[in-house]
Every structure is written in structure tokens, then in C-alpha cells.
Design a protein around this nucleic acid. Sequence first.
DNA 1: CGATGGTTTGAGATATATCAAACCTCGTGG
DNA 2: CCACGAGGTTTGATATATCTCAAACCATCG
Lengths: 232, 232
Amino acid sequence: MSACDTCVVRNRAICAALDTEELKALNAIGRRRMLEPGESLMWEGEDSVLVANVIDGVLKLSTGTEDGREQIVGVVYPSDFIGRPFGSTSGHGVTALTEAKVCVFSRRDFDAFAREHPALEHKLLQRTLAELDRTRRWMLLLGRKSAGEKLASFLLEMSERLVQPGCEVQSEKTLRRFALPFSRQQVADVLGLTIETVSRQFTRLKADGLIDLPSRREVVILDREGLMAEAG
Amino acid sequence: MSACDTCVVRNRAICAALDTEELKALNAIGRRRMLEPGESLMWEGEDSVLVANVIDGVLKLSTGTEDGREQIVGVVYPSDFIGRPFGSTSGHGVTALTEAKVCVFSRRDFDAFAREHPALEHKLLQRTLAELDRTRRWMLLLGRKSAGEKLASFLLEMSERLVQPGCEVQSEKTLRRFALPFSRQQVADVLGLTIETVSRQFTRLKADGLIDLPSRREVVILDREGLMAEAG
DNA sequence: CGATGGTTTGAGATATATCAAACCTCGTGG
DNA sequence: CCACGAGGTTTGATATATCTCAAACCATCG
């Protein structure tokens, strides 16, 4: 019995493309790894040596300028794929925001395996295309939206992506109330703003009755319609 | 003899993955199409009915908000692939910036063909991964760079992507001097700025001796080093 | 408790947006 | 051939959103 048999993302990750035999072979070249919040799995500009599937937790993908400005260019959740297969360098760092569990492969091993399993490559292609769509939508936010619109859009997307698939009851609740896996500074780095502007927008949205903030990391969406209007 | 035999991007587009027989089959389901500047091949939010390869010309991918703000989320050049295979809707419009020639396929036909040709899907995957990398790098520009840095970065990227591959002599020249396929407004839509700010930055870079502007659409890079420093 | 790190709030500075006018460039028609 | 008009571009003056710097605030943990 391989680790994959009990894997919670077995049917949602790209592994879903494989049958039992193939899965066993893939399992043989991968290994599990836990990450603490703040711990990095890869670094910007480094050789692309690893790829991985996210089993549990939330991680950020980020780049920065020479002089220390940072931009978060992606956020990944359970069942998402990370790393740069078929490429020599990783364009962004990957860092855990929460405790995280990932299933890691050496890129060379994974590349070779993928090339022999078109169904796996197909899943990976679908995922990459979807990620590209999402990333392009985010460009509209970065380039054209105001601070208020940015934060509202962000909170709506968060509430949707944090729902655990499968659990019907839970998802209703998460859509309304959830724990942000981001600090204020990290929210700022996602939205291309400063921490102060983010903070002010949080308090404004709360003052306007669209959200509530029971604690620093928790958000309750009181008026989804209103928030969507605010998101532009 | 099929149209592909004389195709100038034959060896650079994803078609390079196919042998003569396969190429013939692909050719059978595609057709050539010319586009005038300003003409659109697909529209944001529309059903994804077409995919295509760019044979010649430059096209923009763009999205917008309800109230008319626009953001260019990608620019494609000869040999690039456009459209959303394996998906139901296209998240952005595709519009020619110059006269353009494309090789169009019905998405359904293309999807079916691709699924039967793993080598083609592999090429498409590589291209999509590279495009995702580029798009994420662009997010840093949109979220964290100043107007001056944005324009400098843009001009450098332009000069590199406009070179015709193959032609050694020409590429040296293009790296220095090229015709912008964008109006000032379109540059603004790429960079997330207003047309006035873009214009002011152009004149500033010129005043600083980093570039020259022989005409509205032409750019000469006088000091590449300096421009790179300016790009942040 | 007091220290620490993150967050909020405030006051002021600044880059970019906005509004408006002047300016080219180029094609058209008198 | 020149006047005219139209579209795009540049320049100017002003407004404003966001940033910057600074202080107060608040949870958490030893």
C-alpha cells in the first residue's frame, strides 16, 4: 500500500490521470514533506530542481526587485501543482503561508515520468492553462483597480478558494467566514499596495458594514452583494 | 503540397512536434486567415470556439472592467499559440495590432487532434508554462514598479521580442531600433498607466538621452545599459 | 508585567490621474 | 498646392489616491 492510496488530493491533483500501477511508479519517485509557515520550498532564480503537489496548506509564489520590493504572483492550495517542469530555473520563490504538506519530486525524475504518461501531461496542461487564465485576470486587478476594489476582489476570491471541496456544509460557512492565511503585509504584496493602505481599506470595508473582522486573521463577509459591487 | 510546407513558423510553432503525415492531418482541419490592424479574432467572455497559431504580425490579449478600463494581459508574436484549448470560454479578447496572418482551428477539432498527439500537447504545455512565467514576471511590473521603470522595462522587452529569429544581421539592428506596434494608449493599457503618464515618461527618457524617438511609432535605444538601470 | 511583532491611525509628501488646451501628422477635398 | 479636419500625441495646471514617515495601539508570549 503506497502513500497515494490514502492521499486526500488523490482524485483532484494531476495524479487523478493515473491508474493504480502508474500511481505506484510515481509514488516510488516522490516523497512527502512537511513545511512550517514561512519555510521555503524553492527560491527565485534558483535552478529548478523540484516539483511538487500540494496536499495540504496554502503557499505563496513570489518575486521581488533588487531593492527589496516584493510581489506575490500566485497562491496555491491543496491539489495544486508547484514548480517548473521542463525548464531550467524557477522564476519565483515558493513559501508556505500555513503549515503545509507537499508531495515532492526531483524535476528530472518527474519530467521523465511525465513524458511517458501523456494523460498526466494532459492534466498538467489543463491546470497550467487554468492558472494562466487566473493570472491574467489578476493583471487587470493589478493594473487597473483601485485599492478598495483590489481588497474586495481579493476577499471574494479568498472565500471561494479556501472552501474544502467535498464538504458541503463547511463550504457554506467558509464562503461567509474564513481565516486569512496572509498577514497584512502579505495581502499588500498580493495586491501591489502598502500595508497601511491595505489596513485602511480593511477598516473602511468594515465601517461600511460589508465585512466584519473578529480577529486579525479572520474575515466575515456580511454583504456579499455589496462586496461584489465594491470589487468593480 | 499543404500550406504547412511553406509555413515560415513551421519549425518554431507547436507544429514542430509533428511529422509530415501528422502535419497533413492538422492542415486538413485548419485554415489561414488575415487580420487587419484593430480586427478581433475573439472576444472576452465569448465561448471558446477557435484556437490559432500566429504566422505573422503582432496581436494583443486584453480584458476590461464593466466601466471601460482596459488592461492588455498579453502580446503574441509569430509562432505563438492563441486561444483556450480544453476550456469553455476565452477570458480575454484577441485583437490584431498590425496586419496579421494566423492559422485557425475550430477548438473542438483541435482538442480532439491534440489529445491524440501527445507530442503536440507536450509542445503546447512547454509554451503555456513559458507564457505563465512571463505573465508572472509582468505582475511584478504592474504591482510594484514606477511609471519610469514600467516604460523602460517595456521598451527593453519589446526590442527583444520583435527580432525576427533567424536573421542575424537584422536582429542586431532591431535590438537598437524598432517600430512599436502600439499606440500610446495601448502602451498605457499594457503598463496600467494613463496615456499622459506614458507620454511624459517617453519624453523624459528621451531628454535623459536613453532613447530617441524618430517618429511616433519608432524607438531607438541609445543607451541600453542606462535603460536597464532605469527598468529597476 | 514588560517586551516584541504585527497592526492601526494620523499627518504630510508625492507620483500618477484628471481635465483642458495646444500641437503634430497625415489624408482629403477644394 | 494649400487649407482643413480628424486622430493621436504632447504639454500644462490641478486634483487625488496612495505612499511615506511616525506614533499609538494591541495581542501574544516569555
